[in-house]
Design a protein around this nucleic acid. Sequence first.
DNA 1: CTAATTTGCAA
DNA 2: TATTGCAAATTAG
Length: 879
Amino acid sequence: MRELLVIIDGNSLVNRAFYALPELMNKKGQHTNAIYGFTNILFRILEEYNPTYLTIAFDLKAPTFRHKEYEGYKSHRKGMPNELREQIEPLKKTIDAFGISRLELEGYEADDIIGTVAKVYEKQNIDVYIITGDKDALQLASDTTKILLTKKGISELDIYDEKALKDQYGITPLQFIDLKGLMGDKSDNIPGVPGIGEKTGLKLLLDYGSLEDVYENRDSLSAGLKKKLEENYDQAFLSKRLATIVTDMPIEIDLNELRLREKNIEELCALFNEFEFNTLLSKIKTTPNPEIISREMKLIKVDKDNLEAFKISANKSKEIFIKASAHKGNIRHRKISSLFIKIDDKLYLFKEDDVILIKDILEDEGIKKSGFDLKQDYILLLPYEIELDGIYFDVEIGEYLIDSSGTNNDLSILSKKYGAGDIKSKEDFFGKGKSEKNLMEIPEQELFLYYWDVLETTERLKDIMMPLIKENEMENLFFEIEIPLIKVLGDMEYHGIMVRKDVLDNLKEKFSIEISLLEKDIYSYSGEEFNINSPKQLGHILFDKLELPVIKKTKTGYSTNAEVLEALKEKHPIIGKITLYRQYTKLQSTYVEGLSKIINPDTGRIHSSFNQTITTTGRISSTDPNLQNIPVRLELGRELRKVFVSKEESILVDADYSQIELRVLAHISDDKNLIEAFSKNIDIHTATASEVFNVAIEDVTKELRSAAKAVNFGIVYGISDFGLSNNLGIPVKIAKEYIESYFAKYPNVKKYMEDVVKDGETKGYVSTLLGRRRYIPEISSKNFVVKSLGKRLAMNTPIQGTAADIIKIAMLKVWQRIRKEKLESRLILQVHDELIVEAPENEKEIAIKILKEEMENAVKLNVQLKADIESGKSWFDTK
DNA sequence: CTAATTTGCAA
DNA sequence: TATTGCAAATTAG
């Protein structure tokens, strides 16, 4: 088999990549799109062509002989934009880490280097592929040299060899130079013969051969053409010289220097990590970390016969790494298959029946437990009446604090990211979806090896992350808040909330009657049956058939959202019906049916998952089901809250913070007027209205209050005049005046907004009161829209995030106090600014007291925190 | 079957 | 061209 040499035109490709891809940035604000595109091409070339030799040619800044001969050469080209320039050096580093050689020579363009190298080696019986976006390179094609031209962005390559050129253009590769002489090249500012383009040029060359031949035969051409040629004689031959790629540069390149070397995995990992190319990280074929494979592994199966040795070791070491693997099943009776504990270089394995033997170790606060997603382990142990204690370091949470923007960070991604070795991802090991393996199917030896890797990696990551958390001054946030919160959330999931299936069933019946009536009405208006749930079909009916005015479009067609329907409601009676239909079907499918599906048959309760590592701001999120978006605003939806109840002889105590975000704003901006508004204990929107619209408190109308409320919301979200005008349906100019008036009354709020944006721009991140960070790469974007988003994020995140910090502290304090006072009350829900406790009736008063005190005293701010408390048998009753 | 799109619910 | 989430239904590939 012949060997293959691939030569890449680096400048051409990096430009293509830059302009073809959208703006990408890492969290430091460094642009990475060109590097990303280029790297993707590299991966593709390596996979598809598997070349023996690979080299990438770059231009250097120095002028070439072409500039000296013709000062117009490429003179009209704009310099490289800074967003691209800053990517060149990192790209070269990346190429080096790939083990790919680079060719750069002063005084010659990449084309010349490519031409020379190609010609030298095609004579040595090597196949040469030249990859570029520049058609000039076609002159280099031969029967053994192929030109691969990028087309349409960078995703596809067109392959040309000598024969393909002949077929398509009818001329030889060398005649391409003559063609350039005739037609010139706009992109390089090569003039050619004005008035001759590709069509005429090709015809002339087809008829006569070369540029010289064309001139010799000019007499047989039409008068006009002859004149053009004669007037531009010098220019034509200059153009031909400029377009000629040098193939005999005085350089010697040893083929061996172009040989593809081994990748420098460590360096590549570090680079991809810096660029935040998480998807590419997994593409790197890693060799197992030598340290891991050289370590001697010792698996010790522990049962009652050899328990003592384990306990001595655990007590001595004081730090263990744990992971439980469990069968699928009910939260209260989920069976642990094996519990793995790593201590130093030993891996201990406990089968289900033996886990209880080490209850004392697991509950010993003095023995530190580290792991990945320890909430899961905590919950798994609860049915065995083991309450995991001494939880010390959770790698998933560590990563969340280091960078809250990360998405689906499983252990395998993290270990690559931090260079902590290579490990199979959960999906790779267990399979996913239908082919997910049952624990029983996996040979024990394999399982053991997998968990060894998991715990080994966990330990390494812990060691890597700990200093990062320290550096970023997040130790307090991590150890005093997030880690202790694991158990609070675990308990909330484990306890769940009682639901009334009978109420759900009634609602289902009631709703389906309404829905079918509405369907009939809608079909009678539309004159045909269609799927009302399909925006496409609904759009067709409303805007094509009924010819209602189009208010808004989406990228795929007409918009039919609530706002649009609201605008159309007077135009046709069908609109009101559709709005109602939407309301009912939403409640039916998402809530009535959704919740029914997920009631735990065992407990009669709903056990939602509370995730601690999802949101960018520090909030908690809830899934399966999401209990943080149960309807409340509309009468109809609010009914659903009757489903959520307390168990027998208990009561729900519901406490929610009053205006926590605006209070946080008052504190961090230290705005006297805003602080004073809160201290007077009057409705904050009314107070704002009075200030902004310059009326006495008593004279604030409903309308003014509601406008002020919108302004307050806008302020919290990072205000823009456009956004506010949109929200209030007023002109941008008026919205602008509102904002200016607000800032005039609350000058320190204005100062805070300016400062936090500035701070975000210089540091690349913003922080909450407790030091939680969010990186905002958007803020250094050149794109106005993206940058504006960045500014709003900078303004909003500290507010929303600080409120999240505060309620987390409150949750901890409430949880701890309930335990300390040995109550049977339980914290069961958190909805961002609201906590719900299920309390036995005789604990109602103390539960109220605890919630009130702990929430209002969670932190000390320049304004009082206020919590409003209600109680009742159902969530509906607490509002 | 999966991914993207549209819609709508909460704080 | 207003912040943060989750989920259902439809539809394109």
